[in-house]
Design a protein around this nucleic acid. Structure first.
Lengths: 327, 327
DNA sequence: CCCACTAATGATCATATCGAGCAAAAGGGG
DNA sequence: CCCCTTTTGCTCGATATGATCATTAGTGGG
């Protein structure tokens, strides 16, 4: 159990920081991606971690996000560190001619508004471009029932040993909520990983250096960035339930319907309006300002704001997600 | 937003893997540490990540744990990646003469039993050696009320600006459950970090290259290992509530009291026996085998086993922690 | 000016879950 | 055979959750 960290005998490692930056645009949750105009795969913003100048990862991250997009990140949280060989293909090419291994530390960042960005090729896009099967606000997507489920069933069926086949079926059933199993919106990462294993996303073929099949579900991203994005979505979906971080995404003032729409956009679910409001009231996260907002054609809604004070009283710390029964 | 990962211009980075390996010994949760006989600070087992031979972090981790302790890890989960300069002191010395930056990827591992280890200086010890203030099974520890709380209050009081002082008080109140705020066992990491900031743990002085004060609370560990251990404890305490991972720590057969004792040892809380059993029954995690265990002097208890099947029915996925009111 | 329409807000009811305590059952030991 | 201990079973009130109905306050059209 003696450590042996002499870098002389080990291969080279380069640490990159990947940021999944979310911001709300109206009622929809957007993610910041870089898209080259020449049609390359969209990528997450990422930058190098320079051990010489950055005292911590988070400081390094905030710095280059500020430098390159011109805005200040609010909430920041580390997601996961990815180091699998073979899933970092396009980035590896940037790792220098000696083929240093790229280790990427993924971060989740939340910004209060989808501000216009200075210059270059970064833009805000809906997350659902990359995970169309994750949006259940209008009911279970046809893509799921018509394409993904049959493909996964036959993938499970292909397994050699019977035990292995049963295990695959079970895993498919649980992660995708088939045959009566409940759909758990937090398992977005599990679902992406399963689709990758089953070869249903374009990245799977690409990483095996096969012909880049055009038939994957959702839009592919560079390197393992779609996996990092899935990690971020899962984390965010889970975390809003036990920490009041939705308010990192809202403007200063908002109506309760706006807030609900935002939560629905994050979780990909339709929520029960009355129950959502009731639990908001119980938790005491928001307080009404007297002001009203003339809405698009109904009774005007009161503008609310987040009240940080209530976190002190030891009540609930997150939102409940009262999902609508059937759609 | 162009990446610039040319390793030539960046400082050197070495990736180390740190493992927090828990196992139950009787009813108590133990952690595997290396202790040099000559009285150096205990450390977590750690090994280098070799980018040449290890395809993934997890594979590398399992490999050297197997090689050095002789047993196979069961459950493994990535915790967090630490890269702060200045908190890795003793390890940095091992990073080679060119002073490569050490980035450590922390892992949580669970083993089904605290097996005897082959050879050297690794041994199983109670986690409470390092976090005595986290064990509330016998009520709130005197260390907390008599030493830590007063010290934290005066630390908060020292803050210059009044607003800063109020913020400190609030933070102390919330993380340590003072003045009526509830004690949240999951916030073990927050508490350790606060104690570090307030200079109450020995590592704080050490990392500032000051005289290694002997007056820190709990036992210090090498490098930032106590922080990693706190991360692991927090994660484990949280995760047992929504994933059935306690059963990675139990033997094949156990009584319900054994299981409760184990959960109490993990969470540092005393639980309400009847309610604990009721929720176990509702979740359907365990099934009775007909067999009984002649206990230490009461009615014999039935031996139970974990039933993986029930995870399929979509019920609750974790234990509820029905804490005992007052002690 | 009144009415239909829309969306916000308010209130109710059955059911499930949680915290807490009481009671019976099944061994071992004097 | 009685006492002690621990397991196991059960009940009661308080609270949270799922679902539905009712009321209010605007807009826009006849």
């Amino acid at each position: 159990m003696k450590p042996d960290l002499d870098p002389g005998v080990l291969g080279r490692v380069v640490v990159g920081l990947n940021a999944v930056i979310f911001a709300a645009d109206g009622d929809e949750l957007n993610v910041l991606v870089t898209e080259s105009p020449d049609g390359g795969q969209p990528a997450l913003p990422f930058g190098p971690f320079d051990p010489e100048t950055h005292r911590t990862f988070e400081i390094g991250l905030r710095e280059w996000v500020r430098g390159q997009t011109g805005f200040e990140l609010g909430y920041v949280e580390q997601l996961y560190t990815f180091g699998d060989r073979g899933r970092d293909a396009p980035v590896a090419a940037l790792a220098g001619s000696d083929g240093a291994r790229v280790v990427s530390v993924g971060y989740l960042g939340l910004a209060p508004e989808a501000r216009v960005l200075k210059g270059d090729d970064a833009r805000w896009v809906r997350w659902s471009r990359f995970f169309p099967w994750e949006d259940h606000r209008e009911g279970r997507p046809a893509l799921l029932t018509e394409d993904i489920e049959p493909a996964l069933r036959s993938w499970a069926d292909e397994a050699g040993v019977p035990g292995r086949r049963a295990a695959r079926f079970d895993r498919v059933r649980l992660t995708f909520g088939l045959d009566g199993a409940p759909w758990n919106e937090e398992r977005a990462l599990d679902r992406y990983e399963l689709l990758y294993e089953a070869g249903l996303v374009a990245e799977a073929a690409r990483d095996r250096s096969e012909a880049p099949s055009e038939h994957g579900v959702g839009e592919a991203m560079a390197s393992d960035h779609r996996r990092i994005l899935a990690t971020a979505l899962s984390r965010l979906r889970g975390k809003i339930k036990y920490r009041p971080i939705v308010f990192e995404l809202t403007p200063e003032l908002f109506t309760l319907s706006d807030l609900q729409k935002l939560v629905e956009s994050i979780s990909g679910l339709s929520l029960h309006k009355q129950n959502f409001r009731r639990s908001l009231g119980r938790a005491g996260f928001v307080e009404g300002t007297g002001r009203m907002q003339s809405s698009t054609g109904g009774r005007p809604a009161e503008l609310h704001r987040f009240t940080r004070d209530t976190m002190r009283s030891g009540g609930a710390l997150g939102l409940t997600i009262p999902r609508l029964k059937e759609m």
